[in-house]
Nucleic acid binder design. Sequence first.
DNA 1: CTTGTGTCCTGTAGGC
DNA 2: TGCCTACAGGACACAA
Length: 277
Amino acid sequence: MPELPEVETIRRRLSAVVIGRRITAVRVQRADIVGFPTSIRAFASRVRGKTVTAVLRRGKYLILQLDNGGQLVIHLRLSGHLAVTRSSHRLSFERARFELGDGLALVFVEPRALGRIYALEATGQYPSVLTGLAKMGPEPISGSFTAEFLAAKLRGRRTAVKTLLLDQRVCCGVGNIYSDEALFRAGVRPDRRAGSLSRTEVVRLWRSLRQVLRDGIRWCGTTMRDSRYVLPDGATGGFQHRLRVFGRTDEPCRCGSTIQRGRIGGRSTHFCPSCQA
DNA sequence: CTTGTGTCCTGTAGGC
DNA sequence: TGCCTACAGGACACAA
């Protein structure tokens, strides 16, 4: 569910609350959401007693930097979210809870239990369960994500261009919503073979990607009707009002055509048959 | 290496 | 109303 703009929004909101706070206690209510280390006791002891010095983001991963050089890494996957709440308050679908002192707790809520939390030591090495993080491409909203980089990743590939936008080694942080929206804004059909895009189309796509991600951040992410994306204080995002195709199947595009829905790489895909070529 | 498919989970929406 | 199926914003393993 949460893609780059949502995770970035969470990162910003969370920073204001948790930086400088010590994690006084850890409770894991569901064992299989701990991705590393394998032992829950080891996980808890790596985090307990540490102070959060920064909150970082890499793609869709949220990273709490700890004062001993370790990191608490969180991936929300499809349905996870984080809540800052009173210690006495219990939430449904709680999977892990980090006490922050002053009666506050950071709670990892994950109905589907697909999300994961990891406790890393200061080695800078990623465990094999986090090779996705190790192999991740440059941040798409940063200067190192150049049009040339994107062009090189698409060149010669026969797979659908949307599939490559969803590849975290290519466009980290991009998920189903923002890939559809970027392709619409670039005027490129999602099922086009990646290698068939002209130089002009690649540059348009590159520009659209960066723009739509930045806009998503500006509007604090997308909260859909069935979405569980909420900010740590329970607020919702605003980008759902600015979506042009995602979730708008059978609705009119601004050009007058009807927005279509298909399936690419197993993911539902939305596009305008007139605006996208 | 590339590409397509199945799997992990659980809640919910929609069809009958 | 109630049951059943398909699907959901992600990522990875695996087979061909």
